[in-house]
Amino acid sequence: MIIYAIAFYLFAAVAVASGTMVVAARNPVHSVLFLILAFFNAAALFVLMGAEFLAMVLIIVYVGAVAVLFLFVVMMLDINFAELRQGFMRYLPVGALIGLVLLAELILIGGTWVFSPDAEIAISDKFYMSGEVTNAHALGLVLYTKYAYLFQTAGLVLLVAMIGAIVLTFRSRPGVRRQKISAQVGRRVEDSVELRKVKSREGV
């Protein structure tokens, strides 16, 4: 149990620290790298809670895709971050004050936290938390039944995201030659290759 606690506080502390560094780091590339570190620690926390599927998904999706995309964007865009940060010092006192107040309040709340006695009753589906089935199995069982509504709606959100991305960025410029996959796939040997007998030393 003590090992569990040590591991939890270790991962949690590293996660918070790297979160702070994401904001504080001067170099944006460093920020993204700290972000990846924070993700890893969060995944570790998931593992500690027995949610290994979520931990893996977090690493694959957030570290593997999102963070790498961030990295690319940050490295490819020519943004003068030093200039952007100029205002930072000006707002730091007020910002820090607000942040500290909020932090203090949240700590205060955490100290007085209680769970409602009814919460135990309200939490249904203890079956899936009992560890009798694997994580992924359990998720699958609820995702397509109890949470089908949310699952489908999330699908719609993704559809809209796709439409939105296309609407905002896709444009057909004149004079740009585009790949026509169907034409490529539909090409046959006869259409593009002409076999000729070339007599030797005569040329075509």
Partner: peptide, 8 residues
């Protein structure tokens, strides 16, 4: 910032 101030 204004939103955060309001919230706090």
């Amino acid at each position: 910032f204004a939103m955060l101030i309001g919230l706090v």
